[in-house]
Design a protein around this nucleic acid. Structure first.
Lengths: 187, 187
DNA sequence: CGCGCGATTGAGTAATTTCAAATCTAGTGG
DNA sequence: CCACTAGATTTGAAATTACTCAATCGCGCG
């Protein structure tokens, strides 16, 4: 009854026990240790991950080996290389544990089967995709219009726990500035 | 039979004439002239727009009155201030005609009625939302990792007609650099 | 105690911005 | 057909900002 996935989905659509049983049967529980890779750049992306517990970073590594944080994923978040997952191509980025992490994994075929078995779940995924789009777009606007200091403050306001859980250098990589520049901001 | 909306939707889900009749009945055709506003910052956002013909820019204006282009919308694109539309709040950005433009407008209540009347349309909107999310995320990655020259080249490669249809200063505002800087790139 | 990781600080360099002026171009009216 | 004008683009130069590279500091842990 206190299943995190069920609570998460029921924030958007109500479920009977039977329906949740169907949903549940498509997900594979997995556990990873800090520094392990869930998605590896250059490899196929098998799963979309729902985070039960822990913290992940989605990282793009450029030609000069510099790491750029595309996003973090904590409890109740979905994360993967969505482009590669959905189109079944090789990953362009990596999904890596920042902490020991428990997830539920859903492969694309099972996702489609789930949607066939329980069409109303599509409403849920639509909401998730839509919200993901809105928040990505707002991040774009924020990057274009807002100074680094304010962006940093927005991040710690929006995800207060993040500052406790990751080194500031990762936040810098998320904001798109060097760790030195972030360090020099008078906060 | 050559209805742009029908062709657009049928790229994702097949439709009977009757089904398309239902869909069609929820949309309101509208026409706008260059420089007119479809969405005005600070005002409620009534519609989501499907562009039949023409070109729109989605603009965020910052405190210093500088314009930032969140996105363009040309034929077969959907555009609005999605955040404000979906949550029925005031617009944070404006949607403005770059050319005379014909659209089909869908208000949120009609959107919900349409989804009830024809649930399979949700598959279509899910695909759109998902692709919108992916492309927004890729724009974030591109901004973080790629130099301006390459980003400019990517844009003209992806949307070749854009360069003919908008001044370079708008592309600069889309890329997040000053028009002078864009002008100084040796292309 | 000493190692290692993260954070800070300093100095020089590179890129971008801003402000200003000059140039170019397309469309308009004479 | 030409001159004029408004908008768009380019160029110049100074100022700002962030970057890189390097050294230092701080702290927890074996």
């Amino acid at each position: 009854m206190s299943d995190p996935l069920r609570i998460h989905i029921e924030k958007i659509i109500p479920l009977t026990d039977e329906e949740f049983g169907i949903i549940s049967s498509f997900f594979i529980p997995k556990k990873y240790k800090k520094h392990q890779f869930l998605v590896q750049e250059g490899e196929p992306v098998v799963y979309n991950y729902f985070v039960i517990k822990g913290l992940l970073k989605l990282v793009y590594t450029d030609e000069t080996a510099k790491e750029h944080i595309v996003g973090f994923a904590m409890e109740d978040w979905w994360e993967t290389d969505f482009q590669a997952y959905y189109h079944q191509t090789k990953a362009a980025m990596s999904l890596v544990c920042v902490e020991d992490t428990d997830v539920l994994a859903l492969n694309l075929e099972d996702y489609r089967l789930l949607c066939t078995a329980l069409p109303k779940i599509e409403r849920f995924f639509l909401e998730k995709a839509y919200m993901g789009f809105i928040s990505a777009q707002q991040r774009i606007v924020s990057t274009m219009t807002t100074g680094i200091k304010e962006r940093y403050e927005q991040v710690i306001k929006k995800y207060p726990s993040l500052i406790q859980r990751v080194p500031k250098s990762l936040i810098a990589a998320y904001l798109g500035v060097s760790r030195e520049t972030l360090s020099r901001l008078s906060l």
